[in-house]
Design a protein around this nucleic acid. Structure first.
Lengths: 293, 293
DNA sequence: ACAAAAGTGTTAAGCATACACCCATGA
DNA sequence: TCATGGGTGTATGCTTAACACTTTTGT
């Protein structure tokens, strides 16, 4: 990741004079932040109409959208030229969340609808010749509309979750873990809504669940379960996705603003500050998760 | 942006002399590790026999054991003299888990039966005049027998979870979060067994669940549920706790060695290394969790 | 009218809960 | 033989899952 490479060179340049290997080994590690950014891919975007119909024909394959994530190409050793997670430094005058938000924003120009600490990775085996590095990793969800821009930059490119290139450091395992967390969390949390826009039809939400869970869910029961949760509010609008009967459009309105399982997330204060700093108040409103551990 | 950031920080670090407050604020924070250590308290230790019977008489109060945790008294500013979580430095030649294990062991001389990363805390608001600090926090469970020693040292003391003294920094919130995680995890994981010894009766296990969940569970149903999980193996032994019929003794034997929700825990390799280093192989065997996220 | 998707109803199976009951043991 | 905890049986209610069915819309 970027921060890994950076620290590597920082150590070299700064001339701290590591006398030998053992001295360097026992020195405290550097810290950085990385982000696994997830968004629904363009495969079966309902907007694209035709794709939807023909993919439904396919017997065996799942006609679901896939998850995509942006990676950045490393411009330094180790792993020069290899794809890696977006990352950056930890600033001590920012919260961890803010640092993660900043890393996300500066590499992808996206604004997440969800941001949560994933895990902190460390240990000697992940340096690969660089300086020892502890990475506080966050994972983020980006809404459909935002992610639709999908402007692959020169050093940033989106990849589907199941067709990842070789990755630097232990970033492959980190991504796998993020996907695991997402798949786990979708069953008892509201994260699915964060991959769509602020409003959505039940069929869209159903599609997200199926895409992420990887199994097909009875639409009728899904509908009932969702509606009985009381967290979906009918906007009154109707939208036609295909050529048939229009579907009701819902908005996610958490009834009990419970915690997500991580501290700091009772409110989105960290995000709020970030959003404010960047004059994007809408992000603020979108980020008030409600779920259980 | 990232490269801007990098140069920025590189320049700052090089001199090592932080000129003023704003420069110090933007410098990268230090990293450390802390541990929330939990064990069942001596309140209603089944071994003590008599206590068990009389506490059952008490109508309103819960006769359950309480959770206790060891705290250390700070010998530096800020918060000099205040109780705080055990902690230590991160060594770059150790895994995070090993560093946590080491911090735990060196302050309490205990060997945990469970160790898992809790969360990483950071941000400017937690310094309180000290250096900016990022704390990778682990939580640990210690078995009944181990914890029974309970030798309060000069600077280490055990406190019951519901009678904590004022704590340094944000350690109170950290502990609360650890308890939240424990209470959440006990419902779908095997963590309860880690608070007892390697073998236990169903009644003992039931007691742990009640103590942690805070609600009373039907013993008959609890028994069925546990046995039907297939993770309990009858050792064939019988033990009398009171003066009545002896109870069967079980051992926890996870059927599917699934993951706990955190990476690195698929095996207890980090712990294994630590245990080996300290010539305590039994710890190794005890640490192979099986649960879900 | 027909096709396709939106949306509702109905029933069976499974699981959790409550609690009645029998069994084993020492005093 | 009695008290106490160990251990089993069973009825009830709720949730889940499966799928048949009705409704709405554009063609």
């Amino acid at each position: 990741m970027l921060s890994d490479q950076k620290e590597y060179f920082t150590g070299k340049r700064q001339g701290m004079g590591f006398g030998n290997v053992s001295e360097r080994r026992s020195a405290p590690p550097q810290v950085g932040v990385s982000v696994v950014i997830l968004a629904l891919g363009p495969d079966d975007m309902p907007e694209h109409g035709a794709t939807q119909a023909e993919s439904a024909e396919t017997g065996a394959g799942t006609p679901h959208s896939r998850l995509w994530l942006p990676l950045v190409k490393r411009v330094r050793q180790p792993f020069l030229g290899t794809w890696a997670l977006p990352g950056g430094d930890l600033r001590s005058d920012w919260s961890l969340e803010q640092s993660a938000y900043s890393a996300l924003e500066s590499t992808t120009a996206l604004h997440p609808r969800y941001l949560e600490q994933l895990y902190t990775f460390g240990g000697p085996e992940r340096s690969h010749g660089g300086l020892p590095m502890v990475s506080v990793v966050y994972w983020a969800l980006v809404g459909q509309a935002e992610a639709a821009h999908f402007e692959d930059g020169d050093n940033v490119r989106w990849f589907p979750e199941d067709e990842l290139p070789p990755l630097a450091f232990d970033h492959r395992e980190i991504i796998d873990y993020a996907l695991l967390r997402l798949r786990s969390k979708i069953e008892y949390s509201d994260v699915a809504t964060r991959l769509l826009g602020p409003t959505f039809t039940l069929r869209q939400l159903h599609g997200v669940y199926e895409a992420i869970a990887g199994e097909s869910l009875d639409l009728a029961n899904f509908r009932r379960k969702m509606l009985s949760s009381g967290d979906l509010e009918d906007t009154g609008e109707k939208v036609r996705e295909g050529r048939q009967r229009p579907a009701a459009v819902y908005r996610y309105v958490p009834q009990l603003p419970a915690h997500t399982g991580t501290p700091h997330e009772f409110d989105g204060s960290g995000i709020a500050a970030m959003a404010k700093r960047n004059e994007r108040k809408d992000v603020l409103a979108a980020l008030s998760p409600s779920a259980q551990i």
